[in-house]
Design a protein around this nucleic acid. Structure first.
Lengths: 197, 197
DNA sequence: TTCAATATATTAACAGTGTTAATTTAATAA
DNA sequence: TTATTAAATTAACACTGTTAATATATTGAA
């Protein structure tokens, strides 16, 4: 990598870092080009030398946040038994991360894409994220004959859709009103979805 | 209701009608105060004589869209057997409505509330909507001993969260990419969730 | 080292947004 | 018909994202 590329990557990094900070702090609605640039220590127009538009920049944060979330998941699920118990732990950590940083949930699921075609890889990254975190343990369930491959195929998605739906309603619609109620419901849903007959 | 109230309601109606048209057509992102006012046949500032802000106006459309969706659900589920089959039909019509008018899904679940406290009733209306549509048939399942009250309590929510999650990913994240895949997954999820052991 | 060429960063400007204040127009009461 | 009140409009403000024009560094050659 030549000097030019190094410098360019560094510059992009400054803007990405600033964007991440705002997303984790104030959230998606309080973000703006001038806001990001000020925090990065540059003029707002400089941003356009490194990113096509502000949405492009914002979506570049996805990978970083996924890594951060993954780190949390790993650290919080190390001691869990493989299989269903581990899936349960992964799901809880996954939910915990987005509740702690609602801005990241907004970015992952709520933010509009200007041009869908070009961001298709990122969108795929997002929708496969929970799969990547839990795939090993779903496979474990199949291998230990706890579930059939068919069961897993559907339940894996049920879990994903349910968690995303719950997070959407809780973060964006204040439903339920308290965190206590919310996490109890998470518990109930997982008990039901992960129940083996 | 005095003349004054009648006239005020009429005025509000013009703006609400314009907003509904834009939401169903162009969707939430293409809406603007000037846009709404032009379609309503008034200046943009006139709007503020009848609504606190534009979000207030936008959220006033929720009730109308719910009625419209409910009408679709009723017409498409009349001949379904009470209980599980009817719940399945209700869910499919519910999903169908939001896929047909993505702007209404954005309004119901994605649009941010400026001031949550004042819009709490509307938020409750939204999150209880599917419940109101399907409650009778869940009760029917309990009464006919197809499910226990405890099972219903959880499964009702699983269905709700799953549908909302699927709609979010499909409408906002193009996941899956085709409508065919999407509706097959809806089918799969309902088979799994509504399965009686 | 100095000067021209290039690359990068900044300011100015545009078209858009929601919202409010000042102003004009319309409706009402005396 | 005139004075008072209500309602609608225009002008303005503070934002937004983005682009063009300008200023500032940085680089390469003489």
């Amino acid at each position: 990598m030549g000097n030019k590329e190094i410098q360019e990557q560094r510059m992009k990094g400054y803007f990405i870092q600033a964007t991440k900070e705002i997303l984790k702090g104030e959230g998606l609605r309080n973000i703006s080009v001038r806001n990001i640039a000020e925090r990065a220590g540059y003029s707002y127009a400089t941003l356009y030398n490194y990113f096509k538009d502000v949405r492009d920049l914002i979506f570049e944060c996805v990978v970083d946040f996924q890594e951060e979330c993954q780190a949390l998941v790993i650290s919080e699920t190390e001691k869990a038994e493989p299989g269903i118990e581990k899936i349960r732990a992964i799901a809880k950590a996954y939910v915990k991360y987005f509740v702690q940083y609602p801005g990241t949930f907004e970015l992952f699921f709520l933010e509009k894409t200007t041009d869908v075609a070009s961001k298709q890889p990122t969108l795929k990254l997002i929708s496969n994220f929970l799969d990547r975190l839990s795939n090993n343990d779903w496979e474990f369930c199949i291998n230990t004959k706890v579930m059939t491959a068919e069961e897993v195929k559907v339940k894996k998605n049920t879990l994903h859709f349910t968690l995303v739906g719950m997070l959407l309603l809780y973060i964006n619609r204040r439903q339920p009103e308290t965190y206590k109620e919310f996490s109890e419901e998470v518990e109930n849903q997982m008990n039901s979805i992960l129940a083996v007959k």
